[in-house]
């Protein structure tokens, strides 16, 4: 599915001169300085850079998990700063899917319960939750593990559970922060394949934070971050 981003209306996300700093006075540390970028529907964007360059900081801002100290962020043309907290919560819950640097699975709950967490938060009824959770697990080949404790899984299986959790709410956009960082390269490749398959088949927008050049190369667009600034933003030929 190849679409021209410019052909669609306002971008899904538009960042305008975002800055984010920590601390104050002389100790103030600029984690992100004057970052502008648009993300359109159906894109796959890799945010690349060295450790500590500000990739996660940028992703958290784009994902409405954090607020910038300067600049503004538009979600489908609406300034996020003007939206109330409930709208932001709803956007994260229903429009976004998350794959974090760590798995963040609840060891006290079953795989299925972990997967359907976004639906539980959204207030979807139990039978419906289970049906949708099982459908996603089925798709990722994990249906037989649904009743397992989330901790009793291999790393690759855990990451698949995390992807199932990101998918279950049928989001428009998935944020993935180092999705393969915790995995050996073989398992990492499998997980990457799954993510890009979803991107292709369903047109889900992907924002992938990584310092893995191979993973970055699979995205259509690479944004390089260095010391809190975007140093390059180019369209490559995605595999």
């Amino acid at each position: 599915m190849k679409t021209s981003p410019a052909a669609q209306g306002p971008p899904l996300l538009r960042a305008r001169s975002l800055s984010r700093w920590y601390g104050s006075g002389a100790d103030r540390f600029h984690a992100l300085t004057d970052v502008s970028l648009d993300i359109h529907r159906g894109e796959s964007v890799a945010v690349v850079g060295k450790s500590g360059s500000g990739k996660s900081t940028l992703m958290h801002l784009l994902a409405l998990l954090d607020a910038p100290d300067q600049g503004s962020l538009l979600l489908e043309g609406a300034d996020v700063a003007t939206l109330d907290r409930r709208r932001l919560d709803a956007a994260r819950n229903q429009r976004f899917g998350f794959v974090f640097q760590q798995f963040f699975l609840n060891p006290a709950q079953s795989v299925l319960e972990n997967v359907v967490l976004p639906l539980t938060i959204a207030g979807v009824a139990r039978p419906e939750r289970h049906r949708r959770g099982m459908a996603v697990l089925e798709q990722l080949g994990m249906a037989d593990k649904a009743r397992n404790r989330a901790t009793a899984l291999s790393g690759g299986q855990k990451q698949r559970v995390v992807i199932a959790r990101a998918l279950v709410g049928e989001p428009d956009l998935i944020f993935a922060d180092e999705p393969t960082g915790n995995l050996d390269s073989a398992t990492g490749t499998v997980v990457e394949d799954e993510l890009f398959a979803l991107h292709r088949e369903r047109g889900i927008t992907l924002v992938v934070v990584t310092h893995d050049e191979d993973l970055a190369a699979r995205c259509r667009r690479q944004v390089h971050v260095h010391d809190g600034r975007i140093v390059s933003d180019r369209l490559g030929d995605a595999a």
Partner: peptide, 8 residues
């Protein structure tokens, strides 16, 4: 995690 996933 719950708050990131939209819990109020």
């Amino acid at each position: 995690l719950m708050k990131a996933l939209g819990m109020s």
